[in-house]
Nucleic acid binder design. Structure first.
Lengths: 238, 238
DNA sequence: AAGTTTTACTTGTAAATACAAGTTATTTTC
DNA sequence: GAAAATAACTTGTATTTACAAGTAAAACTT
């Protein structure tokens, strides 16, 4: 019995469980229904269910224990793909704001761009924007984004204020981040960065250069991120 | 036909292919033998072979393409789990040196340790060491390691000079790093750090606090790492 | 009552089979 | 010769079946 939308069953179940975990239907430490129960619930066979669970385990949503079951694992809150862990108190989603400094517009790619570009990317031009992200009204990230202008109609006219770039790409263009690579450095704050992040010049700033892969093989997102890590740390799993 | 050593077949094939990739039998961009060929070569069925390949893809060793095959993916050179990418030239393994600053010895855990500790860990005491790691004789990492003293006989008397802690744990104790979490900050160099990393006081330094999970469920490795990122960046995939 | 054994349930491993879907090279047709 | 159709590959999805191995609670024994 194949689904009408021709989306694989294992992927469908993966999305259902992932949503349930994100929305708190299953909480941290909870035991997921057993594989056989999931088979009955969703009308699949065990290998199919197991494939969903394997992907979830892989993405860190659950931890499997032989003879016991699949336990929901706590995932840190994310900002984009980065995540922030406060050193003093927990961080709520609603306190996060985004302010556009330079509106998205199309420019030619910089010479000596931080990553190597394909021919198609170079030809297509670059959608450029600068954003400042605040937590509790404290500036944390200064984010410069570069996207190749490939099949992204009307993106420069969209509303980015207080919205996630990743969510917009996902909802409107069905583009999802699959992974990527990054270089991390500690650098002294430049005049511009120190002004936006409310730091003194020369104070240590975390600098990330990232290249993100999407489900669209030729399309990558690039960003150069400057982080104020005085009060918060960047949190990550590996 | 079950293997004598009772190691799962899919895991066996995974290890074989991983070694072949690491040792350069298959190079970056090469096409791995097809799933059916691997079935014949190693006397397994396709689901088993596919499980090995799925794990390899997961770990980033290969990228699978439907209708095409599994392509070997380049993995950056690693130092521990961290990896370094030079901004100017490539980095060769042999230029990497480790110097012990504080020999491994057993101490009680610090009050207010950077991560929460289990009761067992607290009782067991802590194996502590400090190491300086150099690339081309330039100090890059100052690495403070903490390991719970659980089932690690004679570890304080082992030879760590110019050897990877991870390799020692793997070879002598069958402990492998499965993953972990980390917090990253940019901080000004303290007096001690600036001396070891050949920096001026107050210069930006990358600080990582990491908790690493092992195949031994109760055993974690902790480290506090200070990186000189003037010439090199920390490279990572996500 | 305390410890031991058994039982039931969990996930792990593995085979055999079938067809779908994407890629590439070959063959055919014009 | 060039474009189009075909064939022969590749990986992706899914079912069915069987047993192994780890966990935890129930039943049993002492």
């Amino acid at each position: 019995m194949v689904s009408l939308k021709s989306i694989p069953q294992h992927k469908r179940l993966y999305e259902i469980l992932r949503r349930h975990i994100s929305e708190g239907v299953y909480k941290e430490g909870d035991l997921l229904p057993s594989e056989n129960e999931l088979c009955q619930l969703y009308g699949m066979t065990r290998p199919t269910v197991r494939q969903s669970l394997a992907t979830l385990a892989n993405d860190g949503y659950i931890i499997k224990h032989q003879g016991k079951g699949s336990i929901v694992h706590h995932l840190p809150r994310e900002i984009g793909i980065l995540s922030v862990s406060g050193t003093t108190s927990a961080v709520g989603d609603r306190k996060l704001k985004t302010r556009i400094i330079v509106k998205p517009h199309i420019i030619p790619w910089e010479e000596n761009f931080m990553f190597a570009l394909s021919g198609l990317e170079k030809e297509s031009g670059c959608i450029y924007m600068e954003r400042l992200r605040l937590l509790d009204d404290v500036p944390i990230f200064y984010d410069i984004s570069y996207i190749a202008n490939i099949n992204l109609p009307r993106i420069t006219s969209r509303q980015f204020e207080n919205r996630s770039l990743f969510r917009i790409l996902r909802d409107h263009y069905h583009i999802e981040i699959k992974g990527g690579e990054q270089r991390i450095k500690a650098i002294p704050a430049s005049e511009k960065i120190s002004r936006f992040l409310h730091l003194k010049r020369g104070q240590p700033v975390l600098h990330l250069e990232r290249k993100m892969e999407t489900n669209n093989p030729g399309l990558f997102l690039y960003s150069s991120i400057f982080c104020n890590t005085e009060k918060y740390s960047i949190f990550g799993r590996f």
